[in-house]
Simulated assay, not measured.
Amino acid sequence: MKIDYLTPEDAALVEMGRRLARVRKQQGFSQIRLAEEAGVGVATLCRIESGQDGQMASWLKLLKGLRMTAAIDTLLPETFDSPMAEVLFGAKKNQKARVAEPGIRWGDQIE
């Protein structure tokens, strides 16, 4: 299942829990071993894998335990290049450049 902005939060949590369980198993971790490695309780890991709400700190610990810290940066990158933001920022910059000189009213500019 693809998670996007239309995905209900509860469905996204269930999907994220499934993905976490899949990665855990692919890396050969039992729930007990990953919980110990990450420093969280087994019950916490079970709740997260079942799609129940989990604290961000628990998710960070689990991703670190799985050696997936790159996923943290992917989730919320330090810098975010948005073409739309660049277009909007460029338009604002151009508007500032078009401010009339003192004593000149719009429509009176000399070309």
Rank of each mutant, 00 (worst) to 15 (best):
L60M: 14
A38I: 01
E101F: 09
L60H: 05
E49T: 02
A97Q: 14
Q109C: 02
A38F: 01
E15F: 03
P8G: 04
V23D: 04
L63I: 08
A43T: 14
F80S: 10
I110P: 00
R98C: 06
L66W: 10
S50T: 13
A97H: 08
Q26Y: 00
E101M: 11
E78A: 12
Q27N: 09
L76E: 13
A97F: 06
S58E: 01
I32W: 05
F80L: 11
L88Q: 08
L75W: 13
I72W: 05
E101D: 10
S82E: 06
I72N: 09
I110K: 15
F29D: 02
L62Q: 02
G41S: 15
G65D: 05
I72G: 04
V23Y: 01
G90A: 12
M84I: 14
A97P: 00
G107S: 08
M1E: 07
A97G: 11
M84K: 13
E78M: 07
Q55R: 15
A85E: 14
M68T: 01
L34I: 04
K92M: 11
A85M: 09
T74M: 10
E86H: 11
G39L: 00
R105W: 10
E36R: 04
W106K: 14
L76F: 12
D73Q: 13
G28F: 03
G51T: 07
K64F: 07
K25T: 11
L62P: 01
L76A: 12
Q31Y: 00
L45F: 02
L76P: 00
F29M: 03
D81C: 00
I3K: 01
F80N: 11
Q31N: 07
R33C: 00
E78Q: 12
M84R: 15
G90Y: 09
D4N: 15
D108Q: 15
L60T: 09
D10H: 13
E36N: 06
A38G: 01
G39W: 07
A71S: 13
Q109W: 12
S58A: 14
A100K: 11
K96C: 05
Q109E: 15
L45C: 01
A97C: 04
G41F: 01
A71Y: 06
G41D: 14
A97N: 13
M16K: 03
G54D: 08
E111G: 01
A70R: 06
L6N: 14
V87G: 01
C46M: 05
M56P: 06
R18M: 14
Q52L: 11
